[in-house]
Design a binder for these strands. Sequence first.
DNA 1: GTGGCTTGTGAATCCAGAG
DNA 2: ACTCTGGATTCACAAGCCA
Lengths: 377, 377
Amino acid sequence: MGVLEKVAARPRVAKAKPQAPLPLDTILMDDCIAAMKSLPAKSIDMIFADPPYNLQLGGDLARPDGSQVDAVTDDWDKFDSFAAYDTFTKAWLKEARRILKDNGSIWVIGSYHNIFRVGTAIQDTGFWILNDIVWRKANPMPNFRGTRFTNAHETLIWASMGEKAKYTFNYRSMKTLNDELQMRSDWEFPICGGPERLKKDGHKVHPTQKPEALLYRVMLAASKPGDVILDPFFGTGTTGAVAKRLGRHWIGIEREGNYVEAAQERIEAALPLDESQLKTMQANTKKPPRVAFGQLVENGYLAPGTMLTDTKRRWRAVVGADGSLTCDTVSGSIHKVGSTVQNAPSCNGWTFWHIESEGALQPIDTLRQTYLLATQP
Amino acid sequence: MGVLEKVAARPRVAKAKPQAPLPLDTILMDDCIAAMKSLPAKSIDMIFADPPYNLQLGGDLARPDGSQVDAVTDDWDKFDSFAAYDTFTKAWLKEARRILKDNGSIWVIGSYHNIFRVGTAIQDTGFWILNDIVWRKANPMPNFRGTRFTNAHETLIWASMGEKAKYTFNYRSMKTLNDELQMRSDWEFPICGGPERLKKDGHKVHPTQKPEALLYRVMLAASKPGDVILDPFFGTGTTGAVAKRLGRHWIGIEREGNYVEAAQERIEAALPLDESQLKTMQANTKKPPRVAFGQLVENGYLAPGTMLTDTKRRWRAVVGADGSLTCDTVSGSIHKVGSTVQNAPSCNGWTFWHIESEGALQPIDTLRQTYLLATQP
DNA sequence: GTGGCTTGTGAATCCAGAG
DNA sequence: ACTCTGGATTCACAAGCCA
């Protein structure tokens, strides 16, 4: 009999009960810590947790076109202080540790607002950090005001029960998934959108729904079929849906009724995985990396002060230390300066600008190729 | 006199002296905290710190009660170790905060072993995290045993002096450097190797020498020419070498004589960029002079009575002789009228309002550009 | 059908300066 | 401290519309 048949077809909702048998494939509609207390010690194989980030947002934020950004303003993300957040974090981590098996492991995701406090608490609770993983967002929200770097990633921490504890790591699966190269600690996925994003009346059901591809890789890496995976901040049930697809048991804890309802429907509709889905999910990463002109300068492929020109030597421009180009009074990116001097709406600076090399002109695009060859595996 | 000439050609080594003037372009051969204590308050523009990663710090370590730890003979558990590391971290961060200017900022780099504790301490010290940055290593060391993910990144934290504090961020430089796209929070660089890697007798001088490209981007992003940049864990002086190249002053603190010696030679050999290239970088960051709408009217670029409209011709407004705009009963600045008619909290009138020109609509911002080009030297 | 254009939107600690 | 105002700011995708 296959593993999948052991997973209940229809997700249940229950109130947490002390001393009950493990409520497999069930959503416990309750407070996260109270529900964990109802679970027996050393009963869970893996925990995936997406706790509140403790965002401390100021006023409203508008896009340059005037539209409003729909931010996270829910009550579940409100804490009075770092101290209050730390207390909360240590409390749920302590319960997490109690219910995890000795060879279990825990994953927690967060951003710079909370991840340092979470990581510290994980270490202080006695867990042993195995890796920190960076989820690079393919399509992050830009920084509208131009005041910081685009916040384009989130961080996951993966930890075992202790320095000497065993844990599951499916090394071969990860290597296969990554074209026979070891899986690295930086993963690129798009943010959750399209048909995967749960919506009701045209509005997103949950403000921070995670992409299934992310959970897929986490479970494939650190759990086995038939394992029990707990998500103490279940939300709309991404963890449950992926667990069902991958033949893992799951337990979700969620306080808010509308999230529970959405999660239930979603998991019920989830189908155990077939090959085609697997291929689709992983077929996203193979485009050649974009190279910015500034990288060539930063990495010494082109010295600041170098003179560039076009094929007909009509214009001469100097490379700046920041990857800018200056031609007469015009300064900016290679593309911008190219379009300005030609009075053209746009210009591909890579093919327009040339470098003198042994008497011959050569487009700077060849430098980019050289750089790509040198830096690609 | 240019900025560069103020930077001492030959790096000096000194013992930290209380009340001395700022020891620019000097390596202080001393304990990190003692040396920082010798520097005056609010005197540093930027700090870049690469503190020890592992928790076995030997002589640096003191227990929370202040007693010294002998890491060789003491058999302390990891909680003592974390506590000692936290004490050390908070101590140097406190001094860092004292000597930073109110509009300064701090960068700290670390890995999952220490970065969560550092990040927590940064927040607890009163700094305000602006971004966490991921350095993706193009060529990381593989995980030989196949027991975890390849540890392919390190994390930098960038923080200002407080939530409301000002700080330097050269948005335009970063955008230029990244081919006219906002710079993201994930940066890819190769690890330090090749001719850049300092070696002596065939062995690397320092185990964790950072690539210059990394420091280059950090300084280009968050400091200005002539700024004073402190590195309290100077090592072999990457911070100093890059600071010299970029026309920044630097101060390094390093206890070990062999590192100091290597850093000195290296910085002496580093070549600064010439004035023109630094000017280019500045030109990219300095904003063009503000042009009031009324100036366009005053100078005949736009006649009073001209009709303006938005892209979809939903509203029509008339230019007044005083540079005001009137749409129906609403009258005021181009921004105010734009926001009022749209019922929006704010509006950039320069891009919202358009003028009919040869049948096509054109934002009035192009008029401003024309005016700027005609009036700027 | 299809290709191009427009519109919408995502875990965001997102302004500066004058008065 | 506060308010007010001028004006500077966005990228990758998905979905929908139209020619």
